[in-house]
Simulated assay, not measured.
Amino acid sequence: MQGNKTEMAHFAALAKSWWNPRGPQRILHKMNNMRMDFINSTLGPSITDPNQNTSKLTVLDIGCGGGLLSESLARRHYVQSVLGIDVTPEVLAVANSHKLVDPKLTNLKYELRSVMDLESVKQSAEKPTFDIVTMFEVLEHLDDPKEALKLAMSKSSQYVFLSTINRTLAAYISTIALGEYVLNIVPPGTHTWSKYINATELESYVLGSGVNSESIWDVEKLQGCIYLPGTGWVRFDDQSNYSTK
Rank of each mutant, 00 (worst) to 15 (best):
G3P: 05
N4S: 13
K5L: 13
K5Q: 13
K5N: 12
K5G: 11
T6R: 15
T6E: 14
T6C: 14
M8I: 12
M8P: 11
A9E: 10
A9Q: 09
A9H: 11
H10F: 14
F11K: 09
F11N: 01
F11A: 08
A12I: 10
A12D: 00
A12L: 08
L14H: 11
L14Y: 11
A15E: 03
A15F: 08
A15D: 04
K16Y: 10
K16E: 09
S17M: 15
W18P: 02
W18E: 06
W18V: 01
W18A: 04
N20E: 15
P21Y: 07
R22Q: 13
G23T: 10
G23S: 09
G23F: 14
G23A: 13
P24Q: 11
P24M: 12
Q25M: 15
Q25T: 05
Q25P: 07
Q25K: 14
Q25D: 10
I27A: 14
L28E: 09
L28K: 14
H29Y: 05
K30R: 13
M31A: 15
M31F: 10
N32D: 03
N32Q: 07
N33V: 14
M34G: 06
R35L: 02
R35F: 00
R35V: 02
D37S: 09
D37E: 11
D37N: 10
F38W: 08
F38Y: 07
F38P: 02
F38K: 08
F38Q: 08
I39H: 03
I39Q: 00
N40C: 12
S41W: 00
T42R: 05
T42V: 03
T42I: 04
L43V: 00
G44N: 03
P45G: 13
P45N: 14
I47C: 02
T48S: 03
P50L: 12
P50W: 12
P50F: 13
N51D: 13
N51L: 14
Q52C: 09
Q52E: 11
Q52P: 10
Q52N: 12
N53H: 05
N53A: 04
T54D: 07
S55R: 13
S55L: 10
S55G: 11
K56C: 07
L57R: 06
L57Q: 00
T58K: 12
V59Y: 00
L60F: 04
L60A: 03
I62Y: 13
I62S: 03
I62P: 05
I62A: 09
G63F: 06
G63A: 04
G63Q: 06
G66E: 02
G67A: 03
G67W: 01
S70C: 07
S70F: 06
E71Y: 12
S72Q: 07
S72F: 01
S72D: 05
L73S: 03
R75C: 09
R76C: 05
H77V: 09
Y78L: 02
Y78N: 02
Y78H: 01
Y78V: 05
V79F: 04
V79R: 00
V79Q: 03
Q80P: 13
